[in-house]
Design a protein around this nucleic acid. Sequence first.
DNA 1: GGGGACTTACTGAGCGTTCGCTCAACGTAG
DNA 2: CTACGTTGAGCGAACGCTCAGTAAGTCCCC
Lengths: 236, 236
Amino acid sequence: MNTAPSQETTPSAGHWRSYGPLDLHPILMHAMRAFNEHGYHGTSVRDIAGRVGVTVPALYYHYENKQALLATLLETSIKDVLDRCRAAAREAGDDPLARFCGMVESIVLYMAHRRQLAFLDTEIRSLEPQNRARYVALRDYLEHMLLDTVEEGRAQGVFTTPIPADAVRSVLVMCQGVANWFREDGPLTAEEVAERHVLLSLGTVGHPAAVAGDVVLPFPRRTPPGRGAASRGSSG
Amino acid sequence: MNTAPSQETTPSAGHWRSYGPLDLHPILMHAMRAFNEHGYHGTSVRDIAGRVGVTVPALYYHYENKQALLATLLETSIKDVLDRCRAAAREAGDDPLARFCGMVESIVLYMAHRRQLAFLDTEIRSLEPQNRARYVALRDYLEHMLLDTVEEGRAQGVFTTPIPADAVRSVLVMCQGVANWFREDGPLTAEEVAERHVLLSLGTVGHPAAVAGDVVLPFPRRTPPGRGAASRGSSG
DNA sequence: GGGGACTTACTGAGCGTTCGCTCAACGTAG
DNA sequence: CTACGTTGAGCGAACGCTCAGTAAGTCCCC
């Protein structure tokens, strides 16, 4: 019944760091904004239609119902972050430290660059059971990917946390948290936030160099490490 | 118009670790549960009234409107966690490490023991501006308390993180996250979760002993540190 | 290349239901 | 007799969703 929703251009080999403008079907775009402002139940179908500039039935022509809008948005989002995280892990190769850093960086970059999509994570409660199950399965898969990496690093002695599962959950929670407070016009760029969260995450999983204060990120940086906001530009 | 909402028994000197059964006005109790299940906008006044076992006007006799229910719940919650955190900090004295550990422990204990109240934090968006402003101010105050402690610890060389503000935000996010996944009948007690999060938080702020793997918590523990679930009992 | 068949994208009107909230009236305890 | 706590009935508005209908485009057959 529905036309296929326009998909995020999937990041192929090595492009998990690059973000263009968000390309969503106008209906999804405005639904996302409305859900962000008022939540799923706080948003009326009429409101979304009004934002798009069409009538209510036009929405129902493209999407089965209000629930399908949320489900499509959330699934698009989790699949994108999962693809990017997998790409980052692949690029990092076998070294658990590099892989951990790459995965955390990719997740935080997503949370910052796709804040409005990532923020919808708070609306899983409003998903009908089967939609929620599919979403949660994908999120669990991401968690397992990261946990495998941390446990491998622990076996190699590069991470010292005695509670890797708790550490990974905490790391993911604090990455997801970025979507709650990050602002494009804030003092830090997405890339700076990602770099900082790599450092914080390393501390959480117990990587000695992170605590010694002289960690060297084992992957190329986009910008020099100067922590100020001097390098900010509205064009980038 | 309203009767005073029944307040949580405030934890006076040294009792910030003790939690009795949650004592709330029945209307608030059922509103809390409904908001947890369906969110603020997803919950109808009729649903709350039905759970309480009264009619709709009876609700409006006790509380001005639906918004007042949420605002009261959230304010009760943040004030309780703030009181307990302050008590923990006071009890810990001047040592930044002990104070940090106590504050994190108190916050996590709250998130676990008062999960349903703490979970409502996701509903701040549904607060009217002035209610939200009051809530956010209290939350910011908590963050500043923790940040002051971390910065003092940094000055003394006990915490090594170069980004204390980011570290504190991350710590609070991961503490708050406990309310999202903790279950009373899960594998860990609230006390065990708190202990683990103290350890994780120490890593996040860069406390060397936490990463070396031989941290000693500078405050008395309730239970032996055995990490298994052997000591669990459904009675408490 | 003209014309019927079909598809796409959309509209105005309105269905039945539920929403937050209110009012006048009532029993009961002190 | 009064104040408290509650009730049945119901207000106007908004809710998600659906219907029949239509303009415009695409397709293929002859």
